[in-house]
Amino acid sequence: MTTSLGAFVLGTPDPPALADFYRSLLGWEEVSREPDWVRLRAPERERPGLSFQLEPDHVPPVWPQRPGAQQMQAHLDIMVDDLDTEVARAVSLGAAVEAHQPQDDVRVLRDPHGHLFCLFLP
Score class of each variant (00 low, 15 high):
Thr2Glu: 13
Met72Cys: 14
Val87His: 10
Trp37His: 12
Leu18Cys: 10
Gly114Asn: 08
Met79Ser: 15
Ala42Leu: 08
Gln71Asp: 13
Gln71Gly: 14
Asp57Trp: 00
Leu5Ser: 11
Leu121Met: 04
Pro43Cys: 11
Val31Asn: 11
Ala88Tyr: 09
Leu26Ile: 02
Ala42Asp: 10
Glu34Met: 14
Val80Gln: 01
Trp28Cys: 09
Leu54Lys: 04
Trp37Asp: 06
Glu98Ile: 02
Gln53Met: 15
His113Val: 00
Gln103Asn: 09
Val87Thr: 13
Ala95Gly: 04
Leu83Phe: 12
Gln103Pro: 02
Ala19Asn: 08
Asp20Arg: 14
Ala90Val: 02
Pro13Gln: 05
His58Trp: 15
Leu26Asn: 08
Leu76Ala: 14
Arg45Cys: 07
Thr3Ala: 13
Pro43Ala: 09
Asp77Gly: 14
Asp36Cys: 02
Pro60Gly: 00
Asp20Met: 05
Pro16Ser: 06
Pro13Asp: 05
Ile78Ser: 07
Gln73Thr: 15
Gln70His: 13
Val59Ile: 07
His75Arg: 11
Thr12Pro: 03
Met72Thr: 11
Ala19Val: 09
Gly49His: 02
His58Phe: 15
Pro13Asn: 07
Val108Cys: 03
Gln73Asp: 15
Ser32Phe: 11
Met79Trp: 08
Thr85Val: 13
Val87Leu: 09
Ala7Val: 05
Phe52Gly: 03
Leu5Asp: 13
Arg107Val: 08
Asp20Glu: 11
Leu116Ser: 10
Ala7Pro: 06
Arg39Val: 12
Pro48Ala: 08
Ala99Arg: 01
Pro48Leu: 03
Ser32Asn: 11
Leu93Thr: 07
Arg33Leu: 11
Ser32Gln: 12
Arg39Cys: 13
Gly49Thr: 00
Gln101Ser: 01
Gln71Cys: 11
Thr2Phe: 12
Leu116Gly: 03
Pro112Val: 02
Arg45Ala: 11
Pro35Ile: 04
